[in-house]
Amino acid sequence: MSTKRNFQGIIPPVSIIFDTNGELDKKGMADVIDFLIDAGVDGLFFLGSGGEFSQMSRELRMEVAAFTTEYVNKRVPVLIGTGSPSTHEAITLSKHAEEIGADGIVVINPYYWPLTEENLLVHYGEIAEAVNLPILLYNYPDLTGQNMSPEFVLKLIEKHPNIVGIKDTIDSVGHIHDMILTVKGKYPEFTVLAGFDNHLLNTLSLGGDGAICASINFAPELAIGVYNAFYENDMETAVNLYKRLAILPTMYKLDSPFISVVKEAMKLKGLDISTHVLPPTRMLDSEKQEKLQEILKKAELL
């Protein structure tokens, strides 16, 4: 297997930009990529939950992966989401990510069917053995219906050394802490990244490595500011920025899925992009847009 790469820091789960026909808007996508790289992110994650992968065909997922990887052109590390309820499809997408030059893949556990631990171990094992890329696990039990415990993760990485980290999208400080103690305690280079904005500072304080959270798409200065201030031991700045960052999850309650909320926030922050979303996600109505503006103002972003 390939040399490990320690993905850490502030990595946005990049919103994918579409035109009104639901096709990839390459100009808008390029503008978003340039904006995020210029802001100082530590990598880019394409085709996560906020990247609408679950609404896409396999062909569209491959098109998005190929374009974004080529356009980034090694300016920052690129992670491609390749998870699927089908092991075969996840392997196909993972091999494609490797072929196009991605730096790593992010693999959410299968959704719809809860799996026995044995079957889940085999699922991830077959993906890990099919590629030489570093792999980040993606734990999002609210959407998949199945939580990955620290003990399960430990079993996986002991068998598959190219599994190098986890995006832990779980609203539980205890779970994140246990992941850090159990897994990083034995494998210090294993990366634990918060998936929710309001868990960034506590994840760093407990020994974690950063975050992959939606607000980075429209307010990268907050998460990056918290991260940099924490490592500069400027806790006053870190806490002040974190207080603003912690306001933002209230906006995700405006709609479900909240993908349209993030795109509208990006546009409000000055990105000239299409806010078209793939069904069943819908555009925000005027009332919700007004509420979004109020939340962004409260966080001092407008």
Score class of each variant (00 low, 15 high):
His276Phe: 14
Leu296Phe: 01
Gly207Leu: 03
Gln55Phe: 14
Asn73Trp: 12
Ser15Thr: 13
Pro134Thr: 03
Leu121His: 14
Leu206Glu: 08
Pro257Asn: 03
Ile33Trp: 00
Leu137Ser: 08
Ile16Gln: 07
Ser149Ile: 01
Phe258Gln: 12
Glu264Met: 11
Phe18Thr: 00
Pro12Cys: 08
Arg5Phe: 15
Ile37Gly: 11
Gln55Arg: 13
Ala39Met: 05
Gly43Tyr: 02
Gly165Tyr: 00
Met1Ile: 13
Asp197Arg: 02
Ser84Leu: 01
Val32Leu: 14
Gly9Asn: 05
Tyr242Asn: 14
Ile37Val: 14
Gly195Asp: 03
Asn202Gln: 14
Met62Ser: 10
Thr116Asp: 04
Pro188Glu: 11
Phe45His: 02
Ile166Asn: 06
Ile166Tyr: 05
Tyr71Asn: 04
Val76Tyr: 13
Ile180Pro: 01
Val173Leu: 09
Thr250Met: 12
Ser86Trp: 07
Val106Arg: 04
Pro161Asp: 12
Leu24Trp: 07
Val173Cys: 00
Met251Gly: 10
Met56Asp: 05
Lys26Thr: 13
Val122Met: 10
Pro13Thr: 06
Glu264Tyr: 06
Ala130Asp: 04
Tyr242Cys: 03
Val72Thr: 02
Ser286Gly: 02
Asp34Lys: 11
Lys269Asn: 12
Gly40Pro: 08
Leu79Arg: 03
Ile91Arg: 12
Arg5Met: 15
Leu36Arg: 04
Glu287Tyr: 12
Phe218Tyr: 15
Leu137Trp: 05
Ile176Glu: 02
Ile157Phe: 01
Ala219Lys: 03
Ile295Gly: 00
Ser215Ile: 11
Thr87Ser: 07
Asn217His: 09
Asn139Arg: 07
Asp171Val: 15
Ile157Asn: 05
Leu302Phe: 09
Lys243His: 13
Glu70Gly: 00
Gly270Thr: 11
Ile166Val: 10
Tyr112Thr: 06
Pro161Met: 04
Pro13His: 05
His175Gly: 02
Phe46Asp: 00
Arg5Ile: 15
Ile11Arg: 01
Glu98Leu: 05
Gly165Leu: 09
Asp285Gln: 04
Met148Pro: 02
Ile16Thr: 15
Pro12Trp: 09
Lys167Cys: 10
Phe67Ser: 01
Pro12Asn: 09
Asp31Glu: 11
Ala265Arg: 03
Ile11Lys: 03
Glu52Thr: 13
Leu254Gly: 10
Ile10Trp: 11
Asn198Cys: 04
Leu254Ala: 10
Leu200Phe: 03
Ser49His: 09
Pro220Gln: 07
Thr182Arg: 09
Thr237Lys: 11
Pro280Glu: 10
Phe53Leu: 12
Gln146Phe: 01
Ile216Asn: 10
Met29Cys: 00
Ile166Lys: 05
Ala30Asp: 06
Ser215Pro: 14
Pro12Met: 09
Thr20His: 06
Ile157Ala: 08
Pro150Cys: 07
Asn119His: 14
Leu193Asp: 13
Phe18Pro: 07
Gly125Thr: 06
Leu204Gln: 01
Phe196Ile: 14
Gly125Ser: 02
Gly83Lys: 00
Asp142Ile: 14
Lys297Leu: 12
Phe53Lys: 07
Asp197Gly: 06
Gly210Trp: 11
Trp113Met: 13
Gly40Leu: 06
Thr82Leu: 04
Ala90Thr: 09
Val261Ala: 11
Met266Arg: 04
Ile108Tyr: 01
Lys269Thr: 10
Gly125Phe: 11
Gln8Met: 13
Ser49Thr: 15
Lys155Ile: 03
